[in-house]
């Protein structure tokens, strides 16, 4: 049985981490409404909840472990109640240990309700972003945080904007090819250990580990820091993985593609990726091959498949009948003065 790759995911993230990421990475302005230490509050899933029914008193199936969103509907509902009933309704909510509450669309809670949340040690935040938009942003962020991840052994390099995942047995020269690509102006994402995450349907994102980042090991030289040597232009922190380049020793029994480039596909975390098998032989410049793989992928992406174009040209010639020998590509050679 071949070895099955393991997947892993985050168990939880803390509320302060989520809020910080919302402010910096997602770019949403969020302000604290009350003074509660949120460091021990954890978010454990990517779903959000609008606790309308809980406010109305029905708490049987209340998913209080989710991040709670109070939008226009919930706030209007509270505002329409007399003060005493407001406290009762809000009390249904804050009796549960929820991670935090977000007030969207610039909504405000009455001071007495904020005090109740503070009393129950529930952090409350406010944002001006409308509910649906805020929930889409937050859900996308949380979905990414809790998405299954997997490690791939190999190097991820951005070549002309295409994420090439160089794989192959240990010692075949993946890092050397990655270094050569960097030398030619391409950008290294990670060497040796690439953590991949499924971002959305058919999009696989890759990055290095926080510990290693852009360090690489080259046998005979030891550890190198690509960023320190080549500078910021030589690296990136994340890249979509688009093509798997499998480097292997030349095997005369193996059938290598002669026309179509893509031999097969491999599925990583449910994302189907084209695999190009590149046999390693002496004198072969794998770096240039990688550049060509990226360019061909780009051409294909924009609707031009060289193998198809050529076979159509051949079929056209055959249809023309009137068998003739191949003629020169130039009808008449003018003189060549050099």
């Amino acid at each position: 049985m071949p070895h099955q790759k393991k997947t892993f995911r985050k168990e939880s993230i803390t509320v302060p981490f989520m809020v910080k990421q919302l402010r910096t990475a997602v770019g949403v302005e969020v302000e604290e409404v009350n003074d509660v230490d949120p460091s021990q509050h954890k978010v454990i899933e990517s779903n959000l909840h609008r606790p309308g029914l809980a406010l109305a008193g029905y708490v049987e199936l209340f998913t209080y472990q989710r991040v709670q969103i109070l939008g226009n509907t919930e706030n209007q509902f509270l505002r329409d109640l007399p003060a005493e009933k407001q406290r009762e309704a809000f009390g249904h909510l804050v009796q549960f240990p929820m991670p935090c509450i977000f007030l969207t669309d610039s909504n405000r809670l009455g001071d007495d309700l904020v005090a109740m949340a503070t009393e129950a040690e529930i952090p409350v935040y406010r944002t001006a972003v409308p509910s649906t938009q805020f929930m889409a942003l937050l859900r996308d962020f949380l979905y990414d945080q809790f998405a299954p991840q997997q490690t791939l052994h190999g190097s991820l390099v951005d070549v002309y904007g295409i994420g090439l995942m160089l794989t192959g047995k240990s010692g075949i020269g993946k890092s050397e090819v990655a270094l050569d690509l960097v030398e030619r102006g391409h950008r290294l994402v990670a060497d040796d250990v690439v953590i991949v995450t499924k971002k959305e349907e058919q999009v696989l994102m890759g990055s290095g580990t926080d510990l290693v980042q852009h360090f690489m090991e080259i046998r005979g030289l030891g550890l190198l820091d690509v960023r320190a040597m080549f500078g910021i232009r030589a690296i990136r922190f994340q890249k979509r993985v688009e093509v798997i380049v499998r480097m292997e020793l030349w095997d005369s029994d193996e059938e290598y593609t002669r026309l179509g480039m893509v031999d097969s596909h491999e599925t990583v975390l449910g994302v189907k990726l084209p695999v190009v098998k590149v046999p390693i032989t002496p004198g072969k410049n794998i770096t240039v091959i990688c550049e060509v793989i990226a360019m061909t992928h780009l051409l294909r992406h924009y609707g031009y498949d060289p193998a198809e174009v050529f076979s159509e040209r051949l079929a056209q010639r055959i249809r023309e009948k009137g068998s003739r020998v191949p003629s020169r590509g130039t009808e008449y050679f003018e003189h060549d003065y050099e």
């Binding site: 070895h3 892993f8 052994h153 010692g171 060497d191 250990v193 290693v212 090991e217």
Partner: peptide, 21 residues
């Protein structure tokens, strides 16, 4: 082939960078 796994995080045991991560 040799893989090392820690809490589901798995790396190739023949890669020094991998083992150090």
């Amino acid at each position: 082939d040799f893989y090392i796994e820690k809490d589901g995080y798995e790396i190739n045991g023949k890669s020094i960078i991998g083992v150090m991560t």
